[in-house]
Nucleic acid binder design. Structure first.
Lengths: 337, 337
DNA sequence: ACCGTCAATGACAACGGTGTCATGTCTAGG
DNA sequence: CCTAGACATGACACCGTTGTCATTGACGGT
């Protein structure tokens, strides 16, 4: 900028004025400055400016998700980005792989970069470590999972209700021997879905004591193995509820391996790509990750714009998509499939 | 930082030393400073530091892709992130939707933020506008598509060769009436793939004049419609080559709508999720986006570490995955399917 | 002719840190 | 006892930009 000023033969502040479109610069001066800036390929350093600028906004938000390679996170990311982009805000994205030990480190990295807001899918059991940062004015918003130990805007899916609805459907088809295949219990969404599943069974009077509840599944491979074990057990379930997209896929592979995909019912949480094209079509609880991202970003920007209403939790409704796998009836004898 | 210094009763510079782990600070002083920093929840402003720091590295890279919601971009992003994370570097990601008008704006946004490196999947026909920036020291790396008008490290897939190989396979199965369904011709990868497709047909003596080459398909819907038109034409093709994941999916939907999915052969470029589970399995050219991302990031960091060898183009090999759809033979009469 | 207003402009401090250098203190060697 | 290092520390300028304020000159009204 110094160079531009010299070349245009004006003061530093005048260049600053031109660059920022401030008023009271003679048209002829403006032209000279612009020409000089062009010639030197000048680009203002946004961070140097932010240092002095009042309000001190970096127009940057951080997004922490499971993995940017996961379609759920990808859609959510896109939702955030679309809103951010329209406000000239850049997005830092980071993957946690639900690894609690990375959370503090990555969040701290982002805070050093002075993000205006943070949109988090948390892993740690407790987010109270963020309180001082929130106090300082950084806008915190949680997506997909509710935080603990801190109060902030939160965007979630109706996990328990949707899981219960899917379970109710399986029961209505006639199933009594169900099984739950889910992610690690520490993950908030996983435990919510399990709760919904079990609560619904309780409601309709299915004894939950005998229902296999398998947890700790985090990828296709572990879900595949767990499903095989279930299918090979002495009294295999007639319907499966899977609590997450990767688990659903691993389970489908296992069902196919055993040739049971048209005989054991399946309802999954999270939509999976091409779920309508495989045989049978995969019935799922479809969340709306794009909308969750948009809503989260929208909350962040509202807060940055000065909204100081009490924190709220927005529940983005999910939809049951019936494609067939959830409508497979239990075998006639009501026992072995 | 001022506050920390005051609280610890030391000078500013001493706090700086402690925070940055510089030597020559008495153990007792260090402890006092750390305690004060902890108490005030002090976090250094990375950008303020970079202002004065020699070398002036922000430890930030920008990633510009098609869409963060696309699984290809997602995997690539993850590849970049994994390497970046290990170097304490944050990643800005932005989606272009292959919209040329967004390219300059988004790139310029990132440059204002003083990214150390930029990993780009470009849309514009010409990237010479980046030359001054490259001169200035910003590391430029292109992924997936070759740049024009500028020299820089580039990571690509063997597009033409792989497309030719897939085409060769379709021909070897007996097909002569093929069709190409592809993205907009301005997109470098799309035109490379078309070239590979047509060149291979030429090589084996299939007259390309009668081969439908449909371009400008950018999403499922347009591919769906285009495929229907092809299938409903007086002399429909017996084999289809689709040049991109979304196009492949739209085409599969169309084939199913017409009940032709087991009678018309299909080879797609880009792997699609669950492609092995639908009927018939989808034969594809599988790229390795994760590896492309990793390699791109690795080039960027090598350059930042001072590597000044001539720019190179790395070709990440792709694999033909045969799952069935590419092995459907043409109908016996050799004409109408 | 005089004065108040207002547009145009630049000098200067400040933002939150780091590089450089001077200063003071302590220790070991002569 | 004296002195050369080595260590510990802070004063100060500076990074690139913006907020504040003072200065200058032109202009309109009386």
């Amino acid at each position: 900028m110094r160079d531009v000023a010299a070349l245009a033969g004006v003061g530093l502040k005048t260049v600053s004025r031109v660059v920022n479109g401030e008023p009271n610069v003679a048209a002829e001066t403006q032209a000279r400055v612009r020409a000089a800036a062009e010639q030197l390929d000048f680009r203002p350093d946004i961070h140097a400016g932010n240092l002095r600028r009042t309000g001190r906004k970096t127009r940057t938000v951080g997004l922490v998700v499971g993995s940017v390679a996961n379609p759920f996170s990808g859609a959510l990311h896109r939702g955030v980005e679309d809103l951010a982009e329209s406000r000239g805000t850049a997005v830092f994205a980071s993957s946690l792989d639900d690894d609690a030990s990375r959370e503090t480190r990555i969040v701290s990295e982002m805070l050093s970069r002075r993000v205006d807001g943070l949109i988090l899918t948390t892993v740690l059991k407790n987010q109270s470590y963020l309180a001082p940062e929130q106090q300082r004015g950084t806008v915190l918003t949680f997506v997909d999972r509710e935080p603990l130990g801190i109060d902030a805007d939160t965007i979630v899916t109706d996990n328990a209700e949707a899981a219960a609805a899917a379970t109710a459907h399986l029961v209505s088809v006639g199933h009594r021997r169900l099984a739950y295949l889910g992610d690690r219990a520490e993950i908030w969404t996983a435990s919510q879905r399990r709760t919904g599943f079990l609560r619904q069974l309780g409601r309709v009077g299915v004894a939950t004591a005998d229902i296999p509840v398998i947890e700790g599944l985090h990828d296709e491979a572990s879900a595949f193995a767990a499903t095989l074990r279930l299918l090979d057990s002495p009294s295999p379930p007639t319907a499966l509820f899977t609590s997450q997209n990767l688990v659903t896929i691993g389970t489908i592979r296992a069902l196919r391996t055993r040739g049971m995909h048209n005989r054991v019912a399946l309802f999954g949480f999270d939509d999976i790509p091409l779920g309508d094209m495989i045989e049978p079509g995969v019935s799922v609880v479809a969340q709306n990750p794009y909308e969750m991202g948009r809503e989260a970003a929208s909350r962040v920007f509202a807060r940055l714009d000065g909204d100081d209403s009490p924190f709220s939790t927005v529940v983005i409704p999910s939809t049951l998509i019936h494609r067939g796998s959830g409508d497979i009836a239990p075998p006639a004898d009501g026992l072995a499939p």
